[in-house]
Write a protein that binds this DNA or RNA. Structure first.
Lengths: 205, 205
DNA sequence: AAAAAGTTTGACCATTTGGTCAGGATGACG
DNA sequence: CGTCATCCTGACCAAATGGTCAAACTTTTT
């Protein structure tokens, strides 16, 4: 009945249909641009029925964001202190690029939220996200101290990785519009470009 | 009276007050998230008075976008075929970064529009924007053929420049949240990082 | 100073939108 | 099969929102 764990099959089915529909709508229109009617229609339910499963529009949005944020950090977490520094970072870039390809709606949901001032996830940014980024920045500084990677600012390196990879999800319309028609290969091409760029930029010496 | 050129002082003053207010509101909330009341209040006018100067909310948005798109291409246009390839591209990066610092609302207005599917500027993307990008991609390919710059995909190079620079405007909240506190230096730091990255990535050989 | 042109507003309207509710339908289960 | 809990809906509501309009108020022009 609430945003917590579903208890019955019907709840299971409907809550996930709602979240799926809401992801579609919110990611495309932003929070205020989305309407309960759109979400209900996309989920194949009536509006009052939506509100039987979630107490409000806001609650749906929060549920969606919580689910997302939970897994958003995973690729960065996987940066391995034991691995080869440049391979690790390039691996991170390619993992993020895969996410942009496979989960573009999640990326746009996140982007919408942040562009509009991150009203609902400010604590996440200054809390868990900042902590993890700071930790990985330290790791990168360690690698730099050992001379295994060029001495660039770790935070801005991470920002650039986010920017370049998420760009292919968030600005997809623009990318396709400019690359058209043969844009089917844009992700492999982007991977090749980004791998080249980061290998070159980070090579020590 | 319409979105064309103002005729009187009062028109001059009020239309620019409206556009300034609308930029503030639209860039922060997106088209659907913005309300005429918010814009009117920010402009210091009554809502009916807004609609005396612009026929609709949509018209204000269009006027704003037209104004913006007109100047959006300038930095890329300035890529000089006569200059040193790497200096030219790094110069472009730094110019875009300056724009992200000085005109963040314009950047967010644009980003909001594209994330939400570019309903109002699709023709601009596949038209003038694509043309200019393709032209500059050819220039970059020429430089590559002369061996003066590394052979990376020119389109994806340009995308990465847009992504990394606009990130500092569009995702400002996130950048500040992670860098805090000493985030006042984020633009000079970003400039240093990006210049390093692109010089390294593009050096021939 | 009067007329004309331009500007502003309060009151109003239709539609959209998030949300409620009483009651009916449907399933789970002894 | 009966009953209890879960699920679903049509009708409804209040607030917000984009937009209209007649009338009043200013400014410019003659």
């Amino acid at each position: 009945m609430q945003g917590t764990a579903p208890r019955t099959r019907i709840q299971e089915k409907n809550t996930s249909a709602i979240l799926e529909a809401a992801l579609e709508v919110f990611s495309q229109a932003g929070f205020r641009g989305a309407t309960l009617d759109q979400i209900a229609k996309a989920a194949g339910l009536s509006k009052p029925n939506l509100l039987y499963y979630f107490p409000s529009k806001e609650a749906i949005h929060v549920a969606l964001l919580s689910e997302l944020l939970d897994s958003w950090l995973d690729p960065l977490r996987a940066l391995d202190p034991q691995g080869d520094p440049i391979d690790e970072i390039v691996g991170y870039v390619l993992r993020k690029l895969d996410m942009a390809r496979d989960l573009p709606r999640e990326s746009r949901l996140f982007a919408n939220e942040i562009i509009q001032g991150a009203p609902r996830i400010h604590d996440y940014i200054t809390g868990p996200l900042k902590r993890l980024v700071d930790e990985k920045a330290d790791l990168i500084r360690d690698w730099q101290a050992e001379g295994r990677i060029a001495p660039v600012d770790p935070h801005h390196l991470i920002f650039s990785i986010w920017a370049t990879t998420q760009h292919y999800a968030d600005f997809d319309v623009q990318v396709r519009g400019i690359l058209a028609p043969g844009q089917d290969a844009r992700f492999p091409e982007a991977a090749r470009f980004l791998e080249h760029m980061y290998r070159r930029a980070l090579a020590p010496g």
